[in-house]
Design a protein around this nucleic acid. Structure first.
Lengths: 146, 146
DNA sequence: GGCATATAGTTAGTTATGCAACTAATTTCA
DNA sequence: TGAAATTAGTTGCATAACTAACTATATGCC
């Protein structure tokens, strides 16, 4: 196979491949070294709740771009760790509102610091305008595929 | 929390987040619609074997950036599907060489076409030089974190 | 030669993803 | 009003990830 046959597939592996995995592993490692017992995926849920508390599970699906079973189980685990609590909505009995506990609120600043530290480690030598280009391209890719 | 406190965390979610997931889901969907029963992860192993057949499991770990247990199980599943075959190395009895079957060789062109099609769908409206910037940034991120 | 160390691969346990099928509550509309 | 369709959430099954602990083989070195 000539090398140029796979040009866009190579970009696939760029977008979805080693760099992303490396960042995720580093962030997880930095969490662990700081004594944090949460996973990256749990963190992404908490992140949206820190921005706006007491969202429904469906709303968390939309914001984290995960499907419903994934959110169900992430919330199960976060509830076991006493970081969130399901509360029945008073206006719609189908809905669980997912609210932060005080313990979760205390984690916010530490995880922000660790995420920023991780991205600083990852972005050494990367120009600011190139970062903007990456953001722009990823937004376009997301819009193309919804 | 002021919004600008999480600037680099936002980029984290860009690199590791929704666009990557959207591309992976679309590629998987395109595989499925073409009647291909393989996962993206299995495909990534086959991809490296198409470039160079009969690699050791350790070499597949290095090239796919996965750990050893992940490769063990990916190879288990690929072997169940008769797409690869483990062969004991003659020079080092610790090593399994993973070789493609004829069935796997027949999948190569179809999956290349589907990967290219998927990336074409994803990259509508994205400029060529911006793609090069994304590749450059991701290479730098990977080098920073190894 | 033989012990210590390193390397290749497997297994076990926990967490997460995707899909399909399911229950329960709500909304639509004839 | 009441049956049909929609929405919110859960459960089951298969695949995959990470960590740690394990076996087997190979290498290094005294």
């Amino acid at each position: 196979m000539p090398n140029n046959q796979f040009k866009r597939g190579e970009l696939y592996s760029v977008i979805n491949g080693m760099a992303s995995t490396a960042v995720a592993r580093r962030l997880q490692k930095n969490f662990r070294q700081a004594g944090l017992e949460i996973t990256i995926e749990q963190w992404s849920v908490l992140y949206h709740l820190w921005k706006e508390d007491c969202l429904s599970q469906q709303e968390l699906c939309n914001r984290t771009f995960r499907d419903k079973p994934s959110i169900t189980r992430l919330i199960d685990n976060l509830e076991k760790q006493k970081l969130v609590k399901r509360t029945a909505s008073k206006t719609d009995r189908r809905i669980n509102l997912v609210c932060l506990t005080d313990a979760a609120k205390e984690l916010q600043q530490l995880t922000i610091d660790l995420a920023n530290q991780t991205m600083n480690e990852a972005l050494i030598g990367v120009m600011k305008e190139d970062i903007e280009t990456v953001k722009k391209v990823f937004q376009q890719v997301f819009d193309n595929l919804i």
